[in-house]
Each structure stands twice: as C-alpha cells, then as structure tokens.
C-alpha cells in the first residue's frame, strides 16, 4: 500500500516534471537560437555596411573613377560625362541617402552594377558561383576524408608516430595554397600527365584544385582533432570497449572518433569561408572558372561593386554556415536536457 502510493506520488511527480521539462527546455532552446539569429543578422548588417563604406572611401571623384575603370584610362572627364554617371549612380545624393538606397537594393538581392561590364553584379556572381561551390564542397569533403584517415593511422600510436603526425599537421596547415597548387600541377599534370593543366570546369580538372584546398584544411582540423583523440583514447569507455573484445580499429572508429571530431565540426563555418578565399588563388593557378577569378580580375581593374558583392556574399555564407553549426550545437548540447 505504502509502496504503491509512494510509487504513485513518484509517478505523478515524474509526470509533472516531464510535462514541465519539455516546455522550459523548448523555451530555453528557442531563446538561445533566437540570440544566435539576432547575432548573425547584426554581423550581416555590419558586413553590408563595411562594403558600402569601402565603396564610399574610394579615393578620388567616384564618377571619374567609374568612367576611367570602364575605359581602362586615367584622364580628366568633361562635366557632361560626369553628370550622366552621377545621375545614374545617384552619386550626388547625401551619403546617408546613398547608404539607405544601397541597403534597400541589397535586401532585394540587387548588388549594384559592375563599373566595367555594364551588367548587374548579382548576374555575374550567379553565373560563376556554381563551379566555386562545387570546388569548395568537394575540398571540404576531401579534407574530412584525409583528416579521419590520417588521425586513425597516427594519433595515439606511441610518441614517435604521434609527434610525426603532429609535425605533418602543423606543416600542411601552414602551406600557402599557391605553392601547393604549383607543386601538384607540376607533378601530376606536367610530369605525369594524369590531369589537365588547364582545369576549365571539367570534372577531371576538379581533383587537383580540390586537393590543394583540402590538404591545408585537413592539417588544420587534424591539429584540433588529434588532441581530443588522444584524450579520448585514455577514457574509461575505451577500456571497457576493449574489454568487450573490440579490435583497435573498431574502438578508434566507433568510439574515439565520435568523441573527438566535435572541434572540427565547430570549425566548419570557418572552413567554408577559408576554403572559398583559398579558391581565389587556386582558380587562378588552375585556370578554373569561378567566383575567385572574377574577384581577382575585378580587384586588378578596381571594379569595386563586384569586389564588394563577392565579399559580402562570402561573409554571408560564412555567417549562415556558422549559424547552422551553432544551432546544431545548441540542439545536441546534453547539458540542456537536465536544465
């Protein structure tokens, strides 16, 4: 009797607790995700403002700069010519008005007009972003593959192999993209002839550029993963898995790896940004189509709307990727289950 009643009381308490728990848990989750969202929006707003300020800070009279950029000249322009450009770009409006115009246009996906190509920047970016995204996503996938294999093979394998692994991590993480690209190009395209020298946008030409981006990234992620991996190897759950008769590779793959890739996952957002900016160099070396080459050409010809358009877009990608990582992190954080 006492037993059942106390059981009942416990059950009731449990029920009320479980009824209260999801509600408060959801509220906390919603609030944390809301905070992240607001933070991301502020950063996006700041990035767009930075882009506007960069355009406004261009030295010299902007109408003259635009005309000269178009013609590839550096001459004085007649007032009639300037008046037309000033009218078209609204350059005589007060700076605050220009700022609001810029932001309003940005919200509708209008990134402005290229100084040189007479076309909307958004159209130019849309045309070229595809190959770059394919390249960066392939590179990130490849870097995970390289990192996991390398860590499984070298981490926690006695002091000599581990420190060799760590030295390789540090070295590859610091390799400049242009240099790695040239080495791969010389060895695999020019000497061995396995891949085309000019990648264009062919699938066969994808591997070397992707590898160039993947190797330093793999080295960078390995540095973070290796420490965690070696810490996890000393955890009791590893010992218990081994006692159940699990093989070394099984323990590493099923137990240790899962516990040690979290730092690398949180780097994903950063990795996307870093890889896209590496693509600028890699596309140039391998003559691959993409947003990076558009950017380099635009920088050399001072075609500022293209530069700011690309830079804002990549910052936005970075912010969105980071937001996703943060939200996933909040959702899987086990500490919230008890709060």
């Amino acid at each position: 009797m006492t037993l059942t009643s106390s059981n009942k009381a416990a059950a009731a308490a449990d029920a009320s607790a479980s009824a209260a728990r999801p509600a408060s848990r959801h509220r906390i989750l919603a609030r944390r995700i809301g905070e992240k969202l607001v933070g991301a929006l502020i950063v996006l707003f700041g990035a767009a403002t930075t882009a506007f300020l960069a355009q406004a800070a261009l030295p010299g009279d902007r109408a003259t700069v635009i005309l000269n950029t178009r013609a590839g000249q550096a001459i004085q322009r007649t007032p009639e010519e300037l008046a037309q450009i000033n009218e078209q770009y609204g350059l005589l409006n007060p700076i605050v008005v220009q700022y609001f115009d810029y932001m309003r246009a940005l919200l509708t996906g209008n990134l402005g007009m290229s100084y040189q190509q007479y076309r909307p920047v958004s159209a130019i970016i849309l045309e070229q972003i595809g190959p770059t995204l394919v390249l960066t996503l392939t590179a990130i996938a490849l870097s995970w593959l390289i990192m996991v294999v390398w860590i499984i093979l070298t981490a926690g394998r006695g002091p000599r192999l581990s420190s060799f692994g760590a030295i390789v991590d540090t070295t590859t993480a610091g390799l400049p993209h242009y240099w790695l690209a040239i080495l791969l190009l010389l060895v695999f395209s020019l000497s061995l002839g396995w891949f085309p020298v000019i990648s264009g946008s062919s699938p066969a030409g994808l591997l070397l550029p992707a590898l160039t981006l993947a190797i330093p990234l793999a080295g960078f992620m390995s540095q973070a993963t290796r420490t965690e991996f070696e810490k996890s190897l000393e955890q009791p759950f590893v010992l218990s898995a081994r006692m159940r008769g699990m093989g070394d590779l099984g323990v590493r793959l099923h137990h240790v790896l899962r516990h040690s890739v979290l730092p690398a996952v949180t780097l994903s957002g950063w990795a996307l940004g870093a890889t896209i900016s590496g693509a600028v160099v890699v596309e140039t070396v391998f003559s691959r189509a993409g947003i990076g080459r558009v950017l380099v050409t635009a920088v050399s010809s001072q075609d500022l709307p293209i530069v700011t358009g690309v830079v804002v877009l990549i910052a936005a990608l970075y912010v969105v990727a980071n937001l996703l990582v943060d939200v996933v992190y909040v959702l899987i954080d086990p500490r919230l289950k008890n709060s």
Partner: peptide, 9 residues
C-alpha cells in the same frame, strides 16, 4: 563583423 570576412578577402 570583421571576423566574418576571410583574411584574404
């Protein structure tokens, strides 16, 4: 905000 721009960009 500045951190959102990759170094090279």
């Amino acid at each position: 905000v500045l951190f959102a721009f990759p170094t090279l960009l």
